[in-house]
Computed example of a mutant assay.
Amino acid sequence: MSGSNFVDYVKIYCRSGKGGPGSRHMRREKYIPKGGPDGGDGGRGGHVIVRGNSQMWTLLHLKFRKHIFAGHGASGSGQCSSGKAGDDVFIDVPLGTIAKDQETGEVLFEITEEGQEEHIAQGGRGGLGNTHFKTSTNQTPQYAQPGEDGHEGWKILELKVLADVGLVGFPSAGKSTLLSVVSAARPKIADYHFTTLVPNLGIVAYRDDRSFVMADIPGIIEGAHEGKGLGHRFLRHIERNSMLLFMIPADSDDYLKEYNILVNELEMYNPELLDKERYLVITKSDMLDEDLMEEISATLHEIPHMFISSITGLNIAPLKDEIWKRLNR
Rank of each mutant, 00 (worst) to 15 (best):
W154S: 01
W154D: 12
W154Y: 09
K155L: 01
V161R: 04
D164L: 08
G166L: 04
G169H: 02
S172E: 04
S172C: 03
S172Y: 01
A173H: 01
K175W: 12
S176M: 07
S176E: 03
T177P: 01
L179A: 06
L179Y: 13
S180L: 06
V181Q: 15
A185N: 13
A185G: 13
K188C: 04
K188N: 11
D191A: 08
D191K: 12
D191Q: 13
F194C: 09
T195W: 05
T196H: 14
L197K: 14
P199I: 11
L201F: 04
L201Q: 11
G202K: 14
Y206A: 15
Y206G: 15
Y206N: 15
Y206I: 13
R210K: 12
S211F: 09
S211Q: 11
F212R: 04
A215E: 09
D216A: 05
P218D: 01
P218H: 00
G219N: 03
I220E: 03
I221D: 00
I221Q: 02
E222F: 02
E222Y: 00
E222V: 07
G223A: 01
A224I: 11
G227H: 10
K228C: 01
K228E: 03
L230D: 14
G231K: 06
G231P: 10
H232F: 14
R233Y: 11
R233I: 02
F234K: 10
R236T: 07
H237M: 04
E239K: 09
E239W: 04
R240C: 01
N241V: 06
S242V: 07
L244M: 13
L245D: 05
M247I: 10
M247R: 02
M247V: 08
I248R: 09
P249V: 09
A250V: 02
A250D: 15
D251Q: 04
L256F: 13
L256D: 06
L256Y: 15
K257I: 04
L262W: 04
V263L: 11
N264D: 14
N264M: 08
N264R: 05
E265W: 04
M268P: 00
N270Q: 05
P271R: 08
E272N: 07
E272P: 00
L273S: 04
L274R: 12
K276Y: 03
K276G: 08
K276W: 01
R278Y: 07
I282V: 15
I282C: 05
T283N: 10
T283E: 04
K284S: 03
M287I: 15
L288P: 06
D289Y: 13
E290K: 05
D291R: 06
D291T: 15
L292H: 12
E294S: 15
E295P: 15
E295A: 11
I296P: 00
S297I: 07
A298W: 14
T299L: 10
H301L: 14
